[in-house]
Simulated assay, not measured.
Amino acid sequence: MATKGDLVEWVRDALVAAGGGATILFVAKHIWEHHESELRANDLFFTWHYDMRWAATELRKRGVMVAAEDDRRGKWTLR
């Protein structure tokens, strides 16, 4: 069963698939297209958009993503 923590890897995977940077909308679509059944399997279905943003914050803390203030609004970029 998928958990909030899985979103960290899923966000990173979406950004890798996009060539290192993408809009938040692209990331959400990518996650939905690749993990819909896992999202629907539990309460994560109701929180995954919030959790996706939390995962981006975690990736920034780990130095994997560019800091929000250093990136374009609405775009997420890997370092």
Results as ranks from 00 to 15, higher is better:
Gly21Asn: 04
Gly21Thr: 07
Ala22Asp: 03
Ala22Phe: 12
Thr23Ser: 09
Thr23Glu: 01
Thr23Trp: 06
Ile24Met: 00
Ile24Gln: 14
Ile24Lys: 09
Ile24His: 03
Ile24Thr: 11
Phe26Cys: 01
Phe26Gln: 09
Phe26Leu: 02
Val27Thr: 13
Val27Asn: 00
Val27Leu: 01
Lys29Val: 13
Lys29Cys: 10
Lys29Trp: 06
His30Glu: 05
His30Phe: 15
His30Ser: 02
Ile31Arg: 03
Ile31Glu: 01
Ile31Cys: 03
Trp32Gln: 04
Trp32His: 09
Trp32Ala: 01
Glu33Trp: 12
Glu33Asp: 15
Glu33Pro: 05
Glu33Gln: 10
Glu33Val: 04
His35Thr: 01
His35Val: 02
Glu36Thr: 15
Ser37Cys: 00
Ser37Leu: 08
Ser37Lys: 13
Glu38Cys: 01
Glu38Tyr: 04
Glu38Asp: 10
Glu38Val: 00
Glu38Phe: 03
Leu39Trp: 09
Leu39Gly: 03
Arg40Glu: 08
Arg40Leu: 12
Arg40Tyr: 04
Arg40Asn: 04
Arg40Ile: 02
Arg40Cys: 05
Ala41Cys: 04
Ala41Arg: 04
Ala41Met: 00
Ala41Gln: 10
Ala41Glu: 01
Ala41Leu: 00
Asn42Pro: 11
Asn42Met: 02
Asn42Asp: 06
Asn42Phe: 10
Asn42Trp: 07
Asn42Tyr: 08
Asn42Gln: 03
Asn42Cys: 01
Asn42Thr: 13
Asp43Ser: 06
Asp43Met: 06
Asp43Ile: 10
Asp43Trp: 13
Asp43Asn: 11
Asp43Cys: 05
Leu44Trp: 09
Phe45Met: 11
Phe45Ala: 09
Phe46Thr: 15
Phe46Ala: 06
Trp48Val: 05
Trp48Ser: 00
Trp48Gly: 00
Trp48Asn: 06
His49Glu: 10
His49Leu: 02
His49Gln: 08
Tyr50His: 12
Tyr50Met: 03
Tyr50Arg: 14
Tyr50Val: 10
Tyr50Ser: 11
Asp51Ile: 05
Asp51Gln: 08
Asp51Thr: 00
Asp51Cys: 11
Met52Pro: 14
Met52Asn: 00
Met52Arg: 11
Arg53Gln: 03
Trp54Thr: 07
Ala55Pro: 15
Ala55Trp: 15
Ala56Tyr: 07
Ala56Asp: 02
Ala56Gly: 08
Thr57Met: 09
Thr57Lys: 14
Glu58Leu: 03
Glu58Arg: 11
Leu59His: 14
Leu59Val: 15
Arg60His: 05
Arg60Cys: 00
Arg60Glu: 01
Lys61Gly: 01
Lys61Leu: 00
Lys61Thr: 06
Arg62Lys: 14
Arg62Glu: 03
Arg62Gln: 15
Gly63Ile: 13
Gly63His: 11
Gly63Gln: 11
Gly63Lys: 07
Gly63Ala: 06
Val64Arg: 06
Val64Phe: 10
Met65Trp: 12
Met65Ser: 10
Val66Asp: 08
Val66Met: 11
Ala67Trp: 12
Ala68Leu: 04
Ala68Ser: 14
Ala68Trp: 15
Asp70Val: 05
Asp70Tyr: 04
Asp70Ser: 13
Asp70Ile: 03
Asp71Met: 13
Asp71Val: 15
Asp71Gln: 11
Asp71Ile: 12
Arg72Gln: 02
Gly74Met: 01
Gly74Val: 07
Lys75Asn: 09
Lys75Ile: 06
Lys75Val: 12
Lys75Ala: 02
Trp76His: 14
Trp76Lys: 07
Thr77Lys: 15
Thr77Gln: 14
